[in-house]
Design a protein around this nucleic acid. Structure first.
Lengths: 206, 206
DNA sequence: TGTTTTACTATACAATTGTTGATGTTCTTT
DNA sequence: AAAGAACATCAACAATTGTATAGTAAAACA
């Protein structure tokens, strides 16, 4: 298998552009018309591009061309993340009904596509020395365990008390949830529920 | 015109889900098959949903249903923002050829859709006291003027010297570009070129 | 040199798909 | 009670669209 020819790149570019412009994929004839060649030529190009893993099509289904990742046409993989409320403001339930809206984050900015992520709005100044400010949006990876020093979203005691974002420091039996704010003391507890680890922070200036 | 009925919501949800799953819109028959009703029923639903501004279709073009904004199916408007390099690391040119990749940001997180935005990777500790850390990604709105106290990306003198992110403080004839780091001094200059204002900050923990 | 790949033309068939007419039921609103 | 909207069926037509056959020709490769 050789690499893409110029003509194939042109066709792939056209498809990619067409999808962005129209929100649906071109038909074989849309491609043929644009390049002023026959329907078969267009179809052959699609086969070639599919063999070279640039596009994917579903046989028999119209306008089903999908531009997939490749050296020449890197697809921007997006992950949808629900923003499920504010940290330390009641109880942001981990359910889809509580989703304020979905954030789209490029997969390249996250570690692993297969993990589940969720987002919370930061309230308060407890993590200010880590550069996490009131109003910031934290994107967390859902997980139950954390390593020492990780920034985690956790609930201590009753879930209704609300989630806190803190530094995780376990020490012989106890768990210390440290704020990054010298005016505040840590929460020391026997057990807490970890909801996720901080992976991304988004701040809005306006 | 009344609001959406439960059935119409179901149909709209199906379409929305189908598009996410398949990357192409359902045909009229895909909808009919799923709900076990006739093709005409599906088609009528599409007309109703279009009249109610929930979807948009192109007549005669297969699989051209597009779910648009509405009370019940708020469309997440995305803005593509080019990441054009690192701040204070050579010269990140404001051109599309220098785009490392495109970030997708929900429009709701930005002030104005019509503005031009670009992104830069932060290098150095000069804005650490504003909670802006090395490696953070700054999303800026392209503009030439700024207000006192704004965080701006600017170049002083030759453009090749590189862009800096600083606090903007003009004072009778001079322009002071203040770092947010007490160990560093401000840049005081007669003139500088402002490239944009900071609007969004993204930090990756991993 | 021969083989493979690329890049097409022209034509055609069949499946997919959008669209419509005629018609009826149920529910809500006036 | 009347009117309209919503929801539905069956059947049919026409346009769109994917796929294929039968070639031609040039370029790339081994």
């Amino acid at each position: 298998m050789r690499e893409l020819t110029q003509r194939q790149k042109d066709v792939a570019t056209f498809i990619s552009t067409f999808i962005k412009e129209h929100n649906y994929a071109p038909s074989v004839r849309d491609i043929a018309d644009h390049f002023q060649f026959s329907v078969k030529a267009a179809h052959d190009h699609l086969k070639a591009l599919e063999a070279k893993q640039v596009i994917k099509t579903k046989s028999g289904i119209s306008r089903s061309i999908e531009v997939i990742g490749s050296e020449f046409f890197p697809r921007e993989e997006m992950i949808q993340i629900p923003l499920i409320g504010s940290i330390a403001a009641g109880m942001p339930l981990m359910s889809e009904e509580n989703t304020e809206y979905l954030l789209s984050i490029p997969a390249t900015m996250l570690r692993n596509t297969r993990n589940t992520y969720f987002a919370l709005r930061i309230r308060g100044e407890s993590m200010i020395e880590e550069g996490i400010y009131d109003g910031d949006i934290a994107i967390l990876r859902k997980c139950e365990v954390a390593d020492t020093g990780d920034i985690v979203a956790a609930t201590v005691g009753e879930e209704e008390m609300g989630i806190t974002l803190k530094l995780y420091y376990p020490s012989n039996g106890n768990i210390e949830l440290r704020p990054a704010n010298s005016t505040m003391g840590p929460i020391i507890t026997r057990s807490c529920k970890i909801h996720g680890k901080l992976h991304l922070l988004i701040r809005n200036y306006a």
